[in-house]
Amino acid sequence: MSPQPPPQNAAPDRAAIAGALDRARQAIGQRLYDKDHVVRLALACLLADGHLLIEDIPGVGKTTLAHGLADTLGLAFSRIQFVSDLLPSDILGVSVFDRNEAEFVFRPGPIFAELVLADEINRASPRTQSALLEAMAERQVTIEGVTHVLEAPFNVLATQNPADQNGTFALPDSQLDRFLMRIHLGYPTRMAERRLLAGGDTRAEAHNDRLSPVAGPNELIAWQQAAAATLVRDPLLDYLQALIAYSRRTGIFERGLSPRGGLALRRAAQAWALIDGRDHVLPEDVQAVLPAVVDHRLIRRERDTDQPSTHLLHSVDVG
C-alpha cells in the first residue's frame, strides 16, 4: 500500500499541535499526579477520534481525567451516571409535544455533547447499554423516525468497575471492540499518594477552578485530521499486518484481531506519533499503544499472567 496521501491544505504545524497537547498533558497532570502515560493514551484516543473505556475501581481519578480532558480541550462536557433503571431515552433524549408550536419537538439527551462521560455503564441494563453503544458507533440517534446527527467532535469516555459485579451487566466482549482503547488508571504512585494526602481534595479543585483550555472543538477536529494524515510507510504496515496475522494464527486467543481492531491500532499509533510532533509512525508508536488497543480485544484461551499485548510484542518481529 502506498503512503497516506498528503493533506490537501498546507501541512499542519505538528510542532505547534504537539506543544498544545503537551500543555494539556501538563495541566491535567496538575490534577492527576504521575499518570502522564495514561493521560497521553487518553489524549491519543481522542485524537484518533475514538471512544475510551476506563476500567478501574472507583476513586482513582476517572472523573478527574474526564474533566481534565474536557476542560483543556474546551469541549462541551456531559456526564451520565448509569443506574439499573436508566432508560435509553434518558441518554438519547425524547420528543415532547410543544403546545405553543403544536408539534413534537426533540429534547436532546445528555449524549448530545462533545465529550460524554458514561459513568459505570455496567450498572445499566443491556438495553440501555446498547443504545449508548449504537450511538457511539453510528454517531447519530434515531428517535421516532427522525435521525439526529451527533456533531463532531463526539467522543465517549465510559467507565466500568470490574470489581463490582453484583446486579451489574458487564459489557459483552463483542461490544468492547467498539472502544478504541481500554485503559486502567491504577492506584497512585507512592509520591503521588503523598502529594494527594498533603494537598487536599482534587475534586473540589476541579469544580472550583476549571483548567484553562488549550484548544477548542474546532482545533480538536483539525488535530484529528492531522493525526489521520500521519505517514504510515510500508515497513510499518508490514509490522501491523504481522501483528494482526499473528493474533489470528497463534491459537492462544479465542479470536484474532478484527479488521476494526487493526484499524484502531493504526489510528492510535498515528495519534501517538502526533503527540510527539512526528509526521510518520514508528514501530515504537505501535508498541506504546498496543496494550491499550488490543488487550480488551483478545481473550486468551488459557489463563495466563501475560497480557495479550505482551505476548504479541515478544513474538512478532519488527520488520
Binding site: 514508528l282 514501530p283 515504537e284 508498541q287 504479541l312 510484542l313 515478544h314 512478532v316 518481529d317 519488527v318
Partner: peptide, 9 residues
C-alpha cells in the same frame, strides 16, 4: 536483537 525489539530500543 530480540524479537519485537525496535531499532531504537
Amino acid at each position: 536483537r530480540h524479537t519485537g525489539e525496535t531499532p531504537v530500543g
